[in-house]
């Protein structure tokens, strides 16, 4: 999607895989299909349903910035195999 400088950004939401997001994309976590042990670890690290994230480096591995309810953030490095198992609702805002 191309956005011209004069057009206000159009907000779109769609379900996709975390691994498909480009650098700079913001999204919200909607689900995770990892097995229990790995899923629990990811959740403990803060990558949980409804978490607000931004991709700061795409690729293998990628870096995800997680922002909490107060606006503080932390960064996680995750492998493509993990990113493939996480679904997000992304927005182009």
């Amino acid at each position: 999607m191309t956005i011209s400088d004069t057009t206000p950004p159009k907000l779109t939401h769609r379900e996709e895989c975390l691994c498909d997001l480009e650098t700079g994309t913001c999204a919200r976590i909607t689900g995770c299909r990892l097995d229990r042990q790995e899923g629990d670890m990811l959740r403990a690290l803060g990558l949980r349903t409804n978490a607000q994230i931004q991709i700061t480096r795409s690729g293998e591995p990628c870096i995800v910035k997680i922002t909490d309810e107060a606006g503080s953030s932390c960064s996680l490095g995750i492998s493509r195999r993990v990113a493939q198992m996480v679904t997000v609702s992304s927005s182009d805002d």
Partner: peptide, 10 residues
């Protein structure tokens, strides 16, 4: 291999 997930601290 254990899936790679690592905190990048400040």
């Amino acid at each position: 291999s254990r899936l790679f997930m690592l905190e990048l601290p400040s």
